[in-house]
């Protein structure tokens, strides 16, 4: 199988380039893209990529696989192979550190901005803050995000304004805390989001929904934030 990989080492290369590798797949096995990368790395030790848990939990190996963002460790080669070829590039829209490794600073900065932690001004109870099962259910589909950045880096609005638009991943988490019955800073959180960029750069093209490896729906969460802003603003 032909595997074409984006190569760039800023210390030695003037320009990024695509390098082709021929890989023999073990017969009778449908490998994951990450295993394919390992075979490539066996041939060429200089290839650099991030990986950790190899089971879709840590979110390290988000990359662009045949034009689509996804986690290499849970994407079957058979799902994505086109004309016997696999093309691997780094996540789009973020600066490349080396080969398939991108600098996630812009992504984390937006995550940090939405204050991704519980804020509660009431005196803490002796044991823990309780939540009804119904209120807890509101967090389903929100808390599961692993911050792999597949969604935000497939979003043109995030490509154009990574410093101003929070992006789908950040907004999904923003809504996760807006929806949490134990958080008392809803008004402050909404005030931070009502400008023309942070939320409203979302034009609802739903690239985020189509690529999320955890099957989450950031567009829906953004819709909820918009409704909350609307309720508060009119």
């Amino acid at each position: 199988m032909l595997v074409s990989v984006y190569r760039y080492n800023p210390e030695t290369d003037l320009q990024p380039r695509m390098q082709d590798y021929n890989v023999d797949l073990p017969p009778g096995k449908d490998m994951m893209v990450l295993d394919l990368l390992q075979l490539v790395k066996d041939q060429d030790q200089s290839l650099t990529y991030r990986r950790s848990c190899r089971e879709g939990v840590c979110g390290s190996d988000g990359m662009n696989i045949n034009g689509r963002n996804g986690l290499a460790c849970i994407t079957h080669v058979s799902e994505i192979v086109k004309n016997g070829k696999v093309v691997l590039r780094p996540l789009p829209g973020l600066p490349v550190v080396r080969d398939l490794v991108v600098d996630m600073t812009a992504f984390y900065r937006q995550y940090e901005r939405i204050k991704p932690y519980l804020q509660n001004d009431e005196p803490p109870p002796a044991i823990e803050r309780l939540q009804s099962p119904e209120d807890r259910a509101k967090l389903d589909g929100l808390y599961e995000c692993i911050l792999c950045a597949c969604c935000s880096t497939s979003c043109p609005s995030f490509w154009w304004n990574p410093d101003k638009f929070v992006g789908p991943a950040g907004l999904l988490q923003a809504y996760r805390f807006l929806a949490d019955s134990r958080d008392t800073h809803t008004a402050e959180r909404l005030a931070e989001l009502e400008d023309p960029f942070s939320v409203f750069r979302c034009r609802g093209i739903m690239n985020c929904v189509s690529v999320c490896p955890k099957g989450l729906n950031p567009t829906k969460a953004i819709g909820h934030i918009r409704s909350m802003l609307l309720e508060r603003g009119v």
Binding site: K164, A191, L193, E194, D195, P196, S198, V199, F200
Partner: peptide, 14 residues
């Protein structure tokens, strides 16, 4: 909060 003075309402919701 991202500030901007050239947008119509200076507020995304508006």
């Amino acid at each position: 909060m991202v500030t901007n003075v050239t947008s119509l309402g200076r507020n995304g919701l508006h």
